[in-house]
Each structure stands twice: as structure tokens, then as C-alpha cells.
Simulated assay, not measured.
Amino acid sequence: MSIYVAHRLFAAHDRALAAALAERLAAKVGSERVFLPFCDTDEEGLVAEVKGRRLFELDRERLGRLNAMVALLHGPSLDDGVCMEIGYAAASGIPVLLLTTDFQTYSLTEDGDLLDFPDPLIQAVANRVIRVPHLGPPSSPRQQGATHYAEFLSRNRSQVDSAIDTAVDALLELPPPGPRPTAHSEDGVVFVEGSPYTGWGHDHLARPCLDAGHGVVLPRRFTAANPIGGALDDLSAACGASRLLADVSGPETPPGTAVLIGAALASGVRIGAFHPRPTYTHASGREPNWRNLMIQYAVHAHLDAMEAVQEWLAM
């Protein structure tokens, strides 16, 4: 069994949580069967001419030979690199387990179906979602001299320990990888994925596709009576299209969009990312990235204006 631990890289506590999970998992299956990005690619010590691209290549190579994935997700703003990796694994027939300690649930309308994550596509591609939303029980009696802050810290640590133990046990019970779906594409069909962070919606990108003579498929999951069913339809349509045109605008690539980018990459679909107003990120030894590096190097074209969209559609 080879297990990929997908996690947010950009805060020490996120890396520490992932490392704790990987350590406990390695005790069950052996460290050679666990892959922890950042740690096992030696990101801080890695020297490469184009470091971000090399990191993407190392992670993608490991994504191509998995038995299972566990992804750590928390809060309403989900890491786009992790979501891309989830999509890649799901489209490759790899079972995916999602672990969250978020105490919130989400819905698309005030009285709509409750979802574990803001975009139903995240939940739809998972084989299992583990939610450990409650703090551990308070110690009784409180240790002498301990403050209520120490008590609160202890309850959080207990919650995390419970989440990790549950995830490790569940990973060992996941089914084996399924057959990789046969890649196929509907010639001339473009799946157009808008960004919820912008005001221009899907039509902004659908119109140039139609003008260029392409068929267009729009996402259904946000309007379907059954959001999970609509999400699975979106995944199938995106993986079966000849192109995915995705608006990645926002503080991060929208999480469902990132899932579709990963799934499209695994399925051999050509991907164009529309991002007219990038904010660059910088890290020691890396080239500047205009999005999370897993998104930046997964897409085939970065489209920063409508003229660039039109040129890409004409190719």
C-alpha cells in the first residue's frame, strides 16, 4: 500500500498535523509506503533550475502510483493544491479519504442539503469523509496550577489525536484502487468553469467558446436539486471534454475548480486557466508563482486576457 498525505504547506501547524498523521500511519504500514509532500521532496533543501516545476513533477510522479490518498482539509477556504491532488487521484481510480476538524457544515441555499465542504464536488469525489468537529472532553479534575488556556490546548490536542487515529484505521479499510477510467474526449466540447469569486459568471468564458465554434458544457452542481449528483456529472463531463476552460480568479483557485483541474490533467484533457489579475507568491529558491504551483504547472495555458482565451480556443 502506498499512501499520499495531501495537506496545506503554508503554515507550520498544518505541516505538523500532516507529519503526525504520516508518522502514525508509517507505524502501521512502513515509512516507505507513505509519501508526505514538502518532507519527502525535501522542499527546503531541494535545488533545481526551476524549483516549483520540479516539485510539481515529483508530486505528480508519486500521484501516478498510489493505492490511497488522505487529504487534510479545514475551514471554508480550502487549499487549491490539495484540491488539485484530490481531483487527480479521484480521476485515476485512487480511493480518497478526507479528514476535517471543521465544526461547520455548508449548504448552497439557506435550507439546502448540508455538505461537509463549501463545494459539493469535494465531498462527491471522496470515498469517505471523516469529521471530528468537537473538542476533546475536558480533563476532570483540572491539573493543579493549569490555566484554562492549557485546558483548551489539551482539548484541541485530544481532538487532533482522535482525528488521526480514526483516519489511520479508515485508510487501512479503503478498497483497492479501481480501474483507471478510459480517457475519451468529445471533440470540440469545452467544459467552462467560472469562478464564484468574480461577478462575470460562466457566460464571460462561454461566449468566446461558442463564437469559436465549440460546444459548451456548464457546471450543474450549484443548481442541481441533488448537489452531489450534479457534482459527479460535472466531474464526468470535465474529464470527457476536449478542453477545460477554468476561471481561477480569487484569493485561491476555487476548490471545486482545482479538483476539476487535477481530474482533467489525469484524464488528458487540455486545460486553460483564465486569470486576468494574478497575485504572485514568492518562496526561497522558487520562481514566482501566479497560482499554487500544483495549479500553475497542471494547466497547459495561462490566459490573462480575453484575447489570449480566443487564441487558445483557435489552436
Rank of each mutant, 00 (worst) to 15 (best):
M1L: 04
S2I: 05
Y4V: 04
H7Q: 14
R24D: 12
L25T: 01
A27D: 13
V29T: 01
F38S: 03
D40N: 11
T41R: 02
D42R: 07
L46C: 00
V47T: 07
A48K: 00
K51Q: 04
L55A: 04
H74E: 15
P76N: 06
S77T: 14
S77I: 12
D79R: 01
D80W: 01
D80M: 05
V82I: 11
C83M: 13
I86W: 06
Y88L: 12
L97C: 07
T101P: 00
D102M: 00
Q104L: 00
T105K: 01
T109R: 02
P118M: 04
N127F: 06
I130Y: 03
I130V: 11
P133G: 11
H134P: 01
P141F: 10
H148L: 15
S154V: 00
R155G: 09
R155I: 14
N156V: 14
D161M: 08
A167R: 01
A167F: 02
V168T: 03
L172C: 10
L174F: 07
L174R: 09
G178Y: 03
T182D: 08
G188T: 02
P196Y: 00
D203L: 13
L210H: 06
G213L: 11
H214R: 15
F222H: 15
L232R: 13
V248R: 06
P251W: 06
P254E: 08
I261L: 09
A263W: 05
V269G: 07
I271R: 07
A273E: 08
P278D: 04
T279D: 11
N289E: 13
H300W: 08
L303D: 14
D304Q: 12
M306V: 10
A308W: 03
V309Q: 13
